[in-house]
Amino acid sequence: MSLAELICPAGTPAALRTAVDAGADAVYCGFQNATNARNFPGLNFTPQELRESVAYAHARNAKVLLALNTYPPAGKTDLWWQAADIGAGLGVDAFIIADMGVAHYLAQNHPGIRLHLSVQAAASSPEAIRYYCQHFGVKRVVLPRILTIPEIREIRKEIPCEIETFIFGNHGLMVEGRCSLTSYLTGKSTNMDGVCSPAADVEYKRHEDGSMSSQLGGFTIDCFRCDEKAGYPTICKGRYAAPHRREGYYAFEEPVSLNLSRLLPELIDAGVHAFKIEGRQRSKSYVRGVVSAFRRAVDDIRAGRPANMADLVALTEGQKQTHGAFETKKWR
């Protein structure tokens, strides 16, 4: 069992090659449809691209994990079965799944294929994780981004599978796989369609006083003064007013991104097997920068050398970053 694997995002075949060349132990990707949770325009793989990408990765000793981690709506499951069959035929190293029907389909039709439990399954207790291990033979769980390191250490002792945690990138606030905020405002569902704040429903409006508001589905998610940089309108990072907060505040979270680089040694010590970098929607140069910096850090820690954390911290320099839930219960 290899410790501290680096799991890297690939939104395109070029990004996949970049991540592999930069030292990814595994890359994760999806098909160009609703079967994965980053169903964004211009992203993801055709079956032919995936075939070539698997060959590229395997030739360089890297694994390819296929995200099949959305929830098929009743009557439309065929698209998911098709993706499962194609992926298995192309020799992907594991499927990342969330829906019990999808897990059961893979376990039945492609026995022996490795299953990872997606963060979208929201398994945040040893019992929930064991349920998926027991019934579908899940070999690894991607933990929700809501646990502290001591809690992860405890869970590790009580489950029969490996643990993967997010370490860097976008920081979702809601329990993943249990969030219908996007569909409430746009009609497109994170769980069923694989989208979150879809670009087609986003608008920026300039006001007379020079301020700018960002909107989703016609609802104002945030408003920025002229001297502020307008952010992307994600509902859980929006600014709203409450009865005793009339001035408006970030009701759920500030627009920050997750950077756990400083906690890396502790997470390895807690028994985390794999670290996931978020960002299939990111550019090649972003992937190259982040993956190579984490590669160096993980190798240093594994070899008992002091890691150069400054490189990692610098990746988000100028942006707000957070340790999220991992460092202290006070986050909750």
Partner: peptide, 20 residues
Amino acid sequence: ASLAVSARCYHARAHGRTKD
């Protein structure tokens, strides 16, 4: 409709407190 759940308490946050 229940649209989302979280580990964080947004009632507590609105009042400058933590869940605990």
